[in-house]
Design a protein around this nucleic acid. Structure first.
Lengths: 221, 221
DNA sequence: TCAAAAGTGTTGGGGATACACCCATGT
DNA sequence: ACATGGGTGTATCCCCAACACTTTTGA
């Protein structure tokens, strides 16, 4: 066992992040994720998940945030470890990738891009229409999407995709975009009103019709 | 980003496994896990989870099985990745630990120990009475226990702790040991009879009272 | 014939869905 | 006034926990 620790030098540790956000599309908001076009081999010119090498002196989640910021200029609203991919043949050299999944509030997407000098090689893609991806990144992206769809069911994570204040209809539309199906407005309201995940405010959103009460996220997860 | 890849040499990748099994105790079967007494610094003489260094040419799950076998002579009946722990300060040197959790059929525990020349530094502990553990291994063990208890709820994983054939009462006792509470025998039966997780056989276990039908696991997960 | 475990049947509460309905506002 | 989305009330279904009950065996 001790002899093997020397072979360890041949293993490199990377961190990648699958970060989701809602972006406007012709048929309403769609769930999307940013990809980075690779500028070097292997897979030069192919789309890949944002990420980079783990530093020797930084925690894993810090590395996820840093490499995400370096490649896309984005800062996640929610971040959680997803899975570690380490098959021998997933890359020409041995790379173990610790993958995170994240959410980005929809109001911060364009803000961050403009302030931080939007990287040229970044583009957002509909989760249902991803291009060809480098390495095993398609499998990783789909795994992350599964996790999001499952996790959104029993937790109230979805509010992480919205600004600080939002109406119940907006939140319901997030669920509908994530889950890919319609939800009953009245049942949706009851489901969330009872919990402490949501805190009602005294403000209302005025629009074309009856004003809707604004809510905030409750206790942060 | 590219410059950082050289610093990567300072990071070592380890694989550890939290493996559960049922073992006889004065008050019935208890959920237990094996620990290994460390024979070198840091934490020499302290109990730790079985594990070892990842080889450059082996997949992660293979490494988990290999290091588990090397340290405890055990072969898991079920194995699944748990989480990757990589805080900078979790060890004096930088170690990223990819942790697996596993189940071992109760009929194989002692068989494996006797055939493979039971390692001296291995001992089984009740999950509710763990000794002091090296590094952050207590946190890891408790995280694995959480995962087991949650996962057993919506899947039928628990059968992985039993021999090939078992009665419903035996399976229920596994659930009770894992979850730490009593379950209604009749409801338990109905819950599992409907699924394809269990396949009834034509054999019966004869004992002190009315014979009970034996079951096998259904489609492997 | 009795104790104990195997196995069946019945009931009721809670959560989720479906949907009828009223409310408030801009046009 | 009316269209539209905001918001409330309620019937129904289904899952599942509780528990009474019958069956089968060993002693």
């Amino acid at each position: 066992m001790s002899a093997r620790s020397t072979e360890n030098d041949a293993i490199r540790v990377a961190v990648s992040t699958v970060i989701f956000s809602l972006r406007a599309a012709p048929d309403g908001d769609r769930l999307m994720l940013p990809l980075v076009r690779r500028t070097r081999d292997p897979h030069r010119g192919v789309w890949a998940l944002p990420g980079g090498w783990l530093d020797a002196d930084e925690d894993l989640d810090v590395a996820a945030s840093r490499t995400l910021a370096e490649t896309t200029a984005l800062t996640p609203s929610y971040l959680e470890q997803l899975y570690t991919f380490g098959d021998v043949d997933r890359s020409p050299t041995r790379v173990v990738s610790i993958v995170y999944w994240a959410l980005l509030r929809s109001d911060l997407v364009d803000t961050q891009r403009s302030t931080a000098g939007a990287p040229e090689n970044v583009e957002w893609f509909d989760v249902d229409a991803l291009p060809a991806l480098a390495f095993d990144h398609r499998r990783i992206a789909e795994y992350a999407l599964d996790r999001l769809r499952n996790k959104v069911g029993y937790s109230r994570i979805a509010a992480g995709l919205l600004p600080d204040e939002f109406t119940l209809t907006e939140l319901r539309e997030v669920y509908e975009a994530v889950l890919g199906r319609r939800l009953d407005p009245s049942n949706f309201r009851r489901l969330l009103e009872g919990t402490d995940e949501l805190v009602p405010t005294e403000s209302f959103r005025t629009g074309k019709h009856r004003p809707a009460r604004l809510y905030r996220r409750g206790r942060e997860a």
